[in-house]
Nucleic acid binder design. Structure first.
Lengths: 149, 149
DNA sequence: GAAGAAATCATACGTTCGTATGATGTTCCG
DNA sequence: CGGAACATCATACGAACGTATGATTTCTTC
């Protein structure tokens, strides 16, 4: 914006100087005033249009930025066919979900009211079905397969 | 668009007529040419700006529509301010990323060409900064804080 | 050049995890 | 009735993980 103003001012100064010179040469011609006016009008109209376009361009990008910020609301839908094809049971899936939330086996056991050993059994089974060796890997695989959010 | 041209032409005609009249009154004044030029310049610049804005308005909405269609590919952008405020170093962040991909400490060590002990140090530090006790928890926290994809 | 941050690595110890194996109980279905 | 599938729990052991502590090196910054 500041750049626009500076450029505008510089151009205006240049134009006035040019006019000052041209004026003396053309003053002899009839209707020089009209020609002069037309010249100024045309130049400034062009300049104005350019300025108007420039002024709105920034507004334009602002809008774009605002739109780009938006995308973040994805509804999760489980791929039940995948769950079934892998033979993952409800309890196993539940364990996987809680693992993904960062809970330890002990915490999961407390949450679901079973023993820690049971949780271990469930997790170990899902890991096998997913082809995972670690819980972090299981989470990664589970998410990529759309089994968990 | 056509309306613009017509309006523009009409205004130009009006202006020229007005000038024709004013000219005779002000011709006696010194530097009337400059005043005349300034008047024409100001008027046409304003007109040009208005025209420029009008011309780009339709274009603008087109751009907006095009941008609205776009937001479906969720480009991850890291919350660098969060990274900084937590004092997480590049290496620590990298370790967290690889943990999130389901790699073991040993695998991470091989991937980044450091010892497993170093990886442990890095992870332990991020865990502390994130307030996590386990790697799965660290991943969950890191994702919710937009530190990792 | 001292101070600080960052990265590297080691040793050590306790905890958590993953797997194997086996046992028991429930429910559903042919 | 008798498997089949699911869930539950235990014991046991090795592997992986997390933390604490200390040392060294490299770079930046004041």
């Amino acid at each position: 914006m500041r750049r626009h103003i500076l450029l505008y001012g510089a151009l205006a100064g240049l134009l006035i100087t040019a006019m000052q010179l041209v004026q003396y040469r053309w003053l002899v011609v009839d209707h020089s005033i009209e020609i002069y006016g037309a010249l100024v009008a045309a130049l400034f109209a062009t300049l104005g249009i350019w300025l108007g376009t420039g002024l709105t361009r920034s507004q334009q990008s602002k809008v774009i930025v605002r739109e780009v910020v938006a995308p973040e609301s994805t509804h999760f839908t489980r791929d039940d066919s995948k769950v079934e094809s892998l033979g993952i049971t409800p309890r196993e899936l539940q364990s996987l979900e809680l693992i993904a939330e960062g809970l330890s086996n002990r915490q999961i056991a407390e949450r679901v009211f079973v023993s820690e050993n049971t949780v271990k059994t469930h997790s170990s089974r899902v890991f096998g079905k997913l082809g995972a060796q670690r819980r972090t890997q299981a989470v990664q695989l589970g998410k990529s397969m759309r089994l968990i959010p």
